[in-house]
């Protein structure tokens, strides 16, 4: 059984106005417990809409969203309880910071949940630690932090709920390569320690290749391709044909193959290509 499943989901924005637009068309997709699933697609492909359905921010025009097999919209009044279980980190989440101190801001979700002050304090420290924010930061104003630190504080504000499902919409957008790797690393570790189901939206094929167990490609409001990372990248022509990209290192590997060098294996990661090249050289015996 899937941890989170969207069944035959359709969403129309601005229904019955001149601006009517179908964002999602009969989408079926499931997310297995404990796996990292990547969602990739161009702007306007429906990723953000899909993501906001997962924690009930958007109610689908048609179709159902199942969490542990239960329709999250069964009791619309209790939708908040779903939001504590499915943590959503929105795009550029640093804009959500508002409280006097970083610590208070991170604890916002728990105060909404009605936790005791002690629990909040404990969990806030833990969440801050998970994204590499030192305890000294917690007493600062969020507006005094640097961009990267604000991003982490905002992510901690979601992690603090200990969500079973963690949905991240471009968590590393606009960060430098090191900041990117750090943030994604923290999130990967959260998955490891909590066994959470993670859904990662990204434009970057590199992120998909490196962090995801499964990849779903969205196109024009539909799921264009869905499978394990191996399956998705085993058919680069299908990706390129849909106007998608493949990881840079894969392009190199493909060029090498075109020039008659036999490469086998996971050609979408740097390590995979390295091993394949070494194997190929070893076979030929020429070093």
């Amino acid at each position: 059984m899937y941890k989170l499943e969207l069944k035959d989901v359709t969403h129309v924005y601005g229904a019955r106005t001149p601006f009517e637009k179908t964002a999602l068309r009969s989408v079926n997709i499931g997310f297995e417990t404990g796996l990292v699933t990547g969602l990739i697609g161009h702007t306007g492909s429906g990723k953000s809409t899909l993501v906001q359905m997962m924690n009930g921010l958007i109610r689908p025009t048609k179709g159902t969203v199942l969490l542990d097999g239960k329709d999250i919209w069964e009791k619309p009044k209790e939708i908040r309880s779903v939001r504590f279980r499915v943590g959503l980190v929105m795009q550029y989440p640093e804009y959500q910071l508002f409280d006097e101190t970083v610590g208070k801001d991170i604890g916002f979700a728990l105060r909404n949940k009605g936790c005791s002050e002690e629990t909040i304090k404990e969990k806030v420290t833990e969440a801050a630690e998970r994204v590499g924010l030192s305890p000294a930061m917690l007493s600062k104003s969020p507006f005094d932090l640097s961009g990267g630190q604000r991003r982490r504080a905002a992510i901690a504000g979601v992690l603090v709920m200990d969500p079973e499902v963690l949905v991240l919409d471009e968590p590393a957008a606009g960060l430098d390569p090191r900041g990117r790797a750090e943030i994604l690393g923290y999130l990967y570790r959260y998955r490891e320690t909590k066994g959470a189901t993670v859904i990662l939206v990204s434009h970057s094929m590199e992120d998909m290749a490196q962090y995801c167990d499964r990849v779903a490609v969205m196109r024009d409001g539909e799921v264009y391709a869905d499978g394990t990372t191996d399956e998705i990248f085993s058919d680069p022509d299908r990706l390129l044909g849909a106007g998608m990209d493949v990881p840079e290192v894969m392009k190199v590997a493909l060029e090498l193959k075109k020039r008659g060098i036999a490469l086998e294996g996971r050609l979408y990661t740097v390590e995979g290509v390295r091993d394949a090249v070494l194997r190929s050289l070893g076979k030929g015996g020429a070093v």
């Binding site: 921010l57 908040r80 939001r83 504590f84 929105m90 804009y95 979700a109 909404n112 979601v158």
Partner: peptide, 13 residues
Amino acid sequence: EKIMNAQKARGAD
């Protein structure tokens, strides 16, 4: 709307 959604995602009522 975006900020409201972000706060709702953190359980704001």
